[in-house]
Design a protein around this nucleic acid. Structure first.
Lengths: 144, 144
DNA sequence: TTACATGTAACTATCATAGTTACAATTGTA
DNA sequence: TACAATTGTAACTATGATAGTTACATGTAA
């Protein structure tokens, strides 16, 4: 199991929009940096658009950032690309046997523990912004 | 995306082994409580055995606990059933373009953030034992 | 009108999951 | 020793998500 790379691709896109904000970022250009297909990019950009993180318009070349990256957390991106649903990071087997004391209570018993673990992970994502990401990229670049 | 229900099934099995420690827990009995196939149970029990959480022997009916449940954390079970690999909760797209400043740094930049989020989730799993689970089940039972 | 982008449907290949059948290997007991 | 019951495992199926791809309708600017 692994959370979809849509998340890392979306971060890549947003970081590139910032770093290349002077240029025109078409889906083909973005796909070239990510090394994937322009359609994959358009699908993810579409999700970022729905989340009001970018602006794109049919027929007009280029995607642009809507917000300052210091105002966008990794959690915002994570929700935008819909990689994990609320309370559903862990799946619980359904239809355990209600005739059994364990079977009839296991779901309600386990759920809060799983949710707590998911929330802890998501809190970390909330604690970092895309500005942090871009800064780290710039710092790594300057080391050469 | 969702983490395999092998994890919740494994917790179910271990809790049931504790609650029914007087009885003989065959794969068929366990499967009856979980409401699945005995082979599915045997596969998961095999993983728990490798992790030294249970004892089972070919030909001999019944699986038994090896440890006190107060000494087994949810993290131990999570690792035993191999639902998420180390550092791989989030996947990162491979082969980004090295000609691009974002492409050549994105992987190394993102990874520590992803690992931090995964570790936070796993820390929560480490903070709870199977004894907590069994206690919660017993408490819920007593409410009737 | 042309050229170029975006948006999206439809399809493919690949993989993990969960379940299932079948059967060999192991053990206790009549 | 033979038998019945159980575990261990290989092999297979169905399902669903992912990532990629082709094709094309739609929209915009020059």
């Amino acid at each position: 199991m692994s959370i979809s790379s849509r998340f890392s691709v979306a971060i890549h896109i947003l970081a590139l929009l910032e770093i290349n904000k002077e240029g025109v970022c078409t889906s083909e250009y973005l796909a070239g940096s990510i090394n994937t297909n322009p359609v994959v990019v358009r699908k993810i950009v579409g999700m970022l658009k729905k989340a009001n993180l970018v602006e794109v318009r049919p027929g007009i070349a280029g995607t642009e950032l809507v917000k300052e990256l210091s105002e966008v957390t990794l959690f915002d991106v994570y929700k935008a690309v819909n990689v994990v649903n609320e309370k559903e990071l862990f799946s619980i087997h359904d239809n355990p046997n209600p005739e059994c004391p364990v079977g009839r209570n296991i779901q309600d018993t386990i759920e809060p523990f799983f949710i707590a673990a998911q929330v802890a992970m998501e809190e970390v994502l909330k604690s970092h912004t895309l500005k942090n990401i871009v800064q780290d990229i710039v710092t790594k670049e300057e080391m050469y």
